[in-house]
Design a protein around this nucleic acid. Structure first.
Lengths: 138, 138
DNA sequence: CTACTTGCAAAAAATTTGCTGCTAT
DNA sequence: ATAGCAGCAAATTTTTTGCAAGTAG
């Protein structure tokens, strides 16, 4: 839940960060695990969970806890939002500007000290729009 | 995952909807379960899960899948956002206007058909601000 | 050195599901 | 009547944790 005092850069941590950064998708812990085993055959799922947690606490990656049972992680730590496809669950980045005063406005309204906000758009992706028409996925 | 064809209004479903609507907090399935047992001592957790799912598929309630492992539900189906306290995890409603063109803007950018968006603000609530200063919670 | 980290396995937490009998419509 | 639902319990899925051995700084 919070950044440790002495962060050590272990092999595993390095590889996790590295792979996630070059990934451009938003994998779950389990997807990361399966991917990582190519480079680190002995890595454990627990290590993957622990490191994704630590890395996001440090702000080196982003934890995406939006819509869907599983947490997802994003190697892109810069400020951006996400779009999710309602049909295929694909998750992508969006760069769009939101009223810069928004956080302050909400601070005033709620009396919270607002540190950040997250935003997720939901819709149908181009592929699903084009693909065979179905009202429902199985 | 989607609205059933013939929705039946059972006792359980009615009470779940009823309780959630007068609740003004954003309970998890388990919290609902414990509450509901006062009125329906024999209700099962599975029924609670199934109904919260169905009711949100119908748009009668909202499913909040933001920040935190557990899904939360909101008896207020109208359009609004949420603020979450980083310290005590409290979740509250916010009514704030966002650029009405936002969804269209994102549609253009991403080529998705955008149906909706969600937004969550994160910060420290008034109570936690006032309360004993701690950099960290245990 | 030694505090932090790993792998492993077991546990916990959260959600889903199969089934049989009940009930709204 | 009968399709849909409830309750129950077992199964899955996802995440966390205790512990002994390994390692970065």
């Amino acid at each position: 839940m919070e950044a440790p005092v002495n962060l050590r850069m272990t092999k595993q941590r390095q590889v996790i960060l590295d792979e996630l950064r070059k990934m451009h998708s938003h994998p779950t812990a389990d997807e990361m695990y399966r991917l990582l085993r190519r480079r680190l055959p002995k890595i454990s799922l627990g290590t993957v969970y622990r490191n994704l947690e630590v890395l996001s606490d440090c702000g080196l990656i982003q934890k995406i806890e939006v819509a869907g049972t599983q947490k997802r992680f994003d190697g892109n730590a810069s400020h951006h939002y996400h779009v999710r496809c309602n049909r295929c669950s694909r998750l992508e980045d969006v760069y769009v500007d939101v009223d810069a005063e928004m956080n302050r406005k909400v601070s005033r309204l709620t009396e919270y000290d607002i540190a950040q906000h997250r935003m997720e758009f939901v819709g149908i992706c181009p592929t699903c729009k084009a693909g065979a028409r179905r009202d429902d996925f199985d």
